[in-house]
């Protein structure tokens, strides 16, 4: 526990002093408020720059809060997710490669504490950013498209936090297993790219962590998929496996730290 706290302090200082806790939430806020705003102004924007032919009538579909929150979610799941994964995919591998980890690994530290400290800070960063983004989105959604039920919104947010924990666990496990280049590629293939694949051919199955955030958004319409609970269970199980793999490989690869 002491080792965990010491390492957590170190990781948190790193994230804080490199301003990650400032810029990433700001990015998510921008991503969150972009969709409610652009959709609201779509007609004006098209009218101003679109050079539409005379007499052309544009009928915009009427958007409901769930459509807007769903659009914001897909922003977080594309740009936001790539940025989060790219930021943390080197967390373990880089320290090994540049030799900074050597001065830690020669000490009697527990690799469980080491991995957990990194997972905790990465998850905190992802969750703070996600919550900031959804808060921004919710503000404009209620302002421009109608109210959202508080309980439903919290369920959606909670579901997204589970997804973030899964994302950080998988990404850090990649970082524990491979060098930075491979870890980054693999994590991007598994997570943002995996989401894309799942959205294209995912209609053949219902149980998949990549569907979790979409199931979360469905709470806004009053009820979610019948597969929600099973999907959460599967995601948590995969997350725990990723954590165990991450711990195992941070220990096994400690000897590859540059001296």
């Amino acid at each position: 526990m002491n080792t965990f706290l010491t390492l957590f302090t170190k990781e948190f200082r790193e994230a804080w002093r490199s301003l990650k806790f400032v810029w990433m939430p700001l990015l998510f806020i921008v991503l969150g408020i972009m969709d409610p705003l652009t959709n609201y102004f779509m007609e004006d924007i098209l009218g101003a720059v679109g050079n539409l032919p005379e007499g052309f009538m544009l009928t915009m579909p009427e958007l409901h809060p769930i459509d807007v929150l769903s659009a914001s979610t897909s922003q977080f799941q594309s740009i936001g997710l790539v940025v989060l994964v790219a930021t943390i995919a080197s967390a373990i591998s880089r320290e090994r490669q540049n030799g900074m980890a050597t001065l830690l690994y020669v000490r009697p530290i527990s690799f469980t504490a080491l991995f957990m400290s990194k997972w905790a800070v990465a998850s905190l960063l992802g969750i703070v950013s996600g919550v900031a983004g959804y808060a921004g989105s919710l503000y404009y959604t209620t302002l421009l498209y109608g109210s959202v039920e508080y309980g439903a919104f919290m369920k959606m947010l909670g579901t997204y936090c589970i997804w973030i924990l899964f994302v950080t666990a998988v990404t850090l496990a990649c970082s524990a297993m491979f060098n930075t280049a491979i870890s980054m590629t693999l994590a991007i293939l598994l997570l943002p790219f995996g989401l894309m694949i799942d959205s294209i051919i995912g209609s053949f199955w219902s149980l998949s962590p990549w569907k979790l955030s979409a199931y979360g958004v469905q709470f806004i319409s009053g009820g979610t998929s019948e597969y929600y609970t099973a999907t959460v269970a599967l995601t948590l199980a995969l997350m725990i496996s990723a954590v165990l793999l991450g711990i195992l490989f941070s220990k096994r690869n400690a000897a590859t730290a540059k001296i």
Partner: peptide, 9 residues
């Protein structure tokens, strides 16, 4: 309405 977006950026 747009001001907050500009401010955050």
């Amino acid at each position: 309405l747009i001001a907050p977006l500009i401010v955050v950026q």
